[in-house]
Design a protein around this nucleic acid. Structure first.
Lengths: 195, 195
DNA sequence: GTCTATAATCAGATAGAC
DNA sequence: GTCTATCTGATTATAGAC
């Protein structure tokens, strides 16, 4: 397969996004220059603009991919079961999925204020859509008496904050295994909403 | 009281810090320029260096003040009571204190990565010191059988994440009063650690 | 204590050669 | 597709006048 020298369109795009994700998560969007991203990939700054319209679009694309990813992964989970079973499934899924993507999680929570209003609205809609998945479980459990939650919206925010917070301290080589963390958190979640 | 024209040392310092806190919280440390801070106060950029050695020190001082403030305010709370009573007290205190200082909370959680290593270590120590206050309550309750927490460190992190998350959505003119939010969260906290 | 002016550097983005 | 070179403007921080 003949190919022009230096032509790597199929791999360079993802490498640019991976480098940007790593650097944005590490130092923050505003603190990272296009030159730094280019250096990380091994190219010159000007060439980045073959793969993104501008820096803002690069950030937006990373956040949109992250949010679409979590929605898609949750949709691919087995359906059905009681509210209690669904809540345990969500808890374990959320922990596992987020621990696998610490940089995407960090970026999507920390850089919202660096999005243009239009881009912000789109990311927010995706986030609310994910929160609604948990809230639907809480509503179902509340209706059939499995849970007792005075306010499902508040409980949703409380549980998501609690679970996502794990990414701030968990390390795979740390004191506790993922299974142990999942079990302990599921125990707290279960009791927090118990009917 | 004679005073030189344009001399406002006693008020300008706090006004600089207040402007920096507002802007850093709104747009992020790296995205805010010294010129913006100066404009917010109504002075020229060069004059800021009368009040801070540099931009990094300005950030560090704001974060240190925020952490020292929460530690001091908690220390000023009435002492004594059962672990259950202390946990309710901590829950309500944490919510109230943090809802009163949304910008300081935001700054202290979001800008850790923009601190120099030395400054980071100092802020982290203060944060751990605050977390230890909650963990001590959980340990006491675990020992006298009031609570059942398989891992007090994990429960500490889980509860703080849950409670601090409130600052991300709560508005004083919103659907729920502070008292209602405190009550609902205390109910979830209580059940999550119940023995 | 605050100003203006400036030094030295770096930013995002584009043009055109290859 | 990537490079070099460059435009335009912003950045932190300092010097010296007042």
């Amino acid at each position: 397969m003949a190919r022009k020298t230096g032509s790597h369109a199929e791999t360079t795009g993802p490498r640019v996004r991976a480098a940007a994700l790593r650097l944005f998560a590490q130092s923050g969007y505003a603190a990272v220059s296009m030159r730094q991203i280019a250096a990380e990939v091994g190219m010159q700054a000007g060439a980045l603009y073959t793969y993104t319209a501008d820096k803002q679009t690069l950030l937006f694309d990373l956040m949109r991919e992250h949010m679409a990813d979590v929605l898609e992964a949750w949709a691919a989970q087995p359906q059905g079961g009681s509210p209690g079973e669904r809540l345990e499934q969500f808890t374990r899924f959320h922990i596992n999925h987020h621990l696998d993507r610490p940089e995407g999680v960090f970026l999507s929570y920390m850089e919202l204020r660096n999005l243009t209003p239009k881009n912000f609205a789109e990311i927010e809609a995706l986030r609310r859509s994910y929160e609604s998945e948990l809230e639907a479980i809480l509503i179902a459990g509340q209706e059939n008496g499995a849970f007792s939650v005075p306010d499902t919206r508040l409980a949703t925010m409380a549980l998501i904050a609690m679970l996502t917070g794990i990414t701030q301290w968990y390390r795979d080589d740390g004191r506790l295994s993922r299974e142990r963390v999942q079990k302990i958190y599921w125990n707290m979640v279960r009791r927090a909403v118990k009917g």
